[in-house]
Every structure is written in C-alpha cells, then in structure tokens.
Write a protein that binds this DNA or RNA. Structure first.
Length: 108
DNA sequence: ACTGTGACACTGG
DNA sequence: ACCAGTGCCACAG
C-alpha cells in the first residue's frame, strides 16, 4: 500500500471512540489538504478501521442505504448524538492535534 | 500524457 | 433545506 493511504489510515485510527471527523479534516490532518475524495476511496476498500467515525462536511452521513443506517447505529452506540440527519459536530467533532509542540503554554 | 471516477467541499440560487 | 455547478486530489486504465 502507498504512503498516502498509510497516513490516511493512521489518521483515521486516531479518532477516539465517541468522536468523529470529516473527510476533509482527515485529509488535512494526514498532510493532503483537499484530498477528501481520496479519504473516501481509501475507506471504501479498507478493513479494521473506525470507518463510521468519518463523515461529510457538517456532520452528514454520505453513504447510501443499509451502510448509512449501520453507520448511524454504530455512532449512536458510542454515544454520538444526532441533530436531525447530521451529527452534532459541536459536541463530537474530533480536533486533530496540531503537530504537537507549544500548546501547553497556550492554555491560558 | 489523457480521461474518468469517487462514502468530498463550497458556493450560489 | 434542496439542488446544480465547479473545484479538488490521487489513482486506475
């Protein structure tokens, strides 16, 4: 598998239980801003990942049919709340840590 | 090198 | 809120 996919997969694996991230955010965190579609493609053909924690912009589920239902159920099972058809991002969006470093002094 | 393709993102009506 | 159009990136053939 290629480097890009490896990084994307690793990034997705960092999303903790009960949290979610968007395709675009994953792409940026992996170092490929704008490659949201690549994230989707990678997810489509990968196993053993918390795939259900990756959503479209605005916390919207982008799958169709049964898969969409399964994703919603999996998320709700980990305590993720929905607001209509989308996830309440204010409460559950996972912020990928910015390259470590100076954040301790930043906290007030 | 060129074209088509995605579980996308954004903007504008 | 719901499209349609346009921009995106990397990959497969």
């Amino acid at each position: 598998m290629m480097a890009i996919e490896t990084r994307i997969l690793g990034t997705i694996r960092r999303i903790p239980r009960g949290k979610v991230a968007t395709y675009g955010a994953v792409a940026r965190a992996a170092g490929f801003p704008g490659a949201a579609r690549r994230v989707a493609w990678t997810l489509h053909r990968s196993f053993g990942l918390p795939w259900h924690r990756v959503l479209g912009a605005g916390g919207e589920i982008k799958l169709r049919g049964d898969s969409a239902v399964e994703q919603r159920l999996r998320l709700e099972a980990e305590g993720v709340a929905f607001r209509g058809r989308r996830v309440d991002m204010r409460r559950h969006e996972f912020k990928f840590p910015r390259k470590s470093a100076a954040l301790k002094s930043k906290i007030r």
